[in-house]
């Protein structure tokens, strides 16, 4: 309770209130996230319940166009699924992938950076050279490579089932370097501070110093990078899905929806691809803006 009131009295909340762009971005991001998380509860239709969809409703335009149907606010696709509902279910997949991938990057990157910075010497050199090598490959290339390899090893009928894990793993793997570098830098700073030496004098073991003294003090910047990287991960997932190596049409993410929808663009059903695209843009920009604000708000040098 005390922590909550301190938060609302604090600088961070103050700078949040003062920035209208951030407030709007935060509201939009919250709507997107809530819509995605609560999709099974609040979506007007269940697009994956075959009993509910009807081919008679296929290719309906958005409700405000004359031939539209008020039941389907943003229109329907070629199979009669409600676009609004598919978007909500799709953002759910997109967000799940993004959050899991970022969590994986954080775990990998923070451990690698902490180890490199604290142990130093040869361990440091090896970890950071691996990071450098990783950086020379574009993230999308690595992700394509991993999804490609991942698919080779499983039978065709199981590929859809593991697609989610493959994509989380490939996006997660490409993201760890940034965390590792940041955490290594802050670890080097913290390591030389006297409280770490004090712990050594007391006789605390190196592992314990690393996790209970250094780790809590290097996590601040990680939070900021993580917020910004969620937006990047959403984009990366959409890109992979668009290219056909991401989520299968049976479990579509926003990227898959855009990719499927563009086949109908020239036949006039623009809403199938445009609305998922707009949602993707809004989601990414709003998360990014919140992340930018967080970076400035938590940076003591800019206060």
């Amino acid at each position: 309770m005390e922590a909550i009131s301190r938060f609302f009295d604090g600088d961070v909340w103050w700078s949040f209130k003062r920035s209208p762009v951030t407030v709007i971005a935060a509201i939009l991001a919250t709507i997107c996230i809530l819509g995605a998380v609560l999709a099974p509860v609040i979506a007007p239709h269940n697009p994956y319940d075959l009993a509910e969809i009807s081919l008679l409703d296929s290719n309906l335009p958005p409700a405000w166009i004359a031939s539209g149907n008020a039941k389907f606010l943003l229109g329907t696709d070629q199979q009669g699924r409600d676009i609004l509902s598919t978007i909500m279910y799709g953002s759910r997949v997109s967000l799940l992938v993004a959050v899991s991938a970022v969590a994986m990057s954080i775990v990998m990157g923070v451990s690698a950076g902490l180890l490199a910075g604290y142990v130093g010497g040869r361990v440091d050199s090896i970890i950071m050279r691996i990071a450098d090598i990783q950086l020379t490959f574009p993230a999308i290339l690595v992700a394509l490579l991993i999804s490609g390899i991942g698919r080779q090893f499983v039978p065709r009928e199981m590929q859809d089932a593991i697609a989610l894990y493959v994509i989380i793993f490939s996006i997660g793997l490409t993201g760890w370097v940034q965390y590792a570098r940041t955490v290594r830098g802050s670890t080097l700073v913290e390591k030389s501070k006297e409280y770490v030496q004090a712990a050594r004098v007391i006789g605390v073991s190196q592992t314990r110093i690393m996790f209970s003294h250094v780790l809590p003090n290097v996590l601040g910047p990680v939070l900021v990078i993580a917020t910004l990287n969620i937006a990047n991960a959403i984009i990366a997932e959409a890109t992979l899905s668009f290219l056909g190596v991401g989520m299968p049409p049976t479990q579509p993410s926003l990227g898959t929806l855009i990719s499927e929808g563009q086949n109908y663009l020239f036949s006039g059903e623009w809403w199938i691809t445009v609305f998922p695209g707009v949602v993707l843009i809004v989601m990414v920009i709003s998360v990014n803006l919140v992340g930018d604000w967080l970076r400035d708000a938590l940076n003591p040098k800019l206060r």
Binding site: E194, Y195, N217
Partner: peptide, 19 residues
């Protein structure tokens, strides 16, 4: 031995873990 020998540091702002 570690228990018997302790140290007080120069900078009181750096020698206590802020968290």
């Amino acid at each position: 031995m570690r228990r018997k020998v302790q140290m007080i540091f120069q900078d009181p702002y750096a020698s206590l873990n802020p968290r």
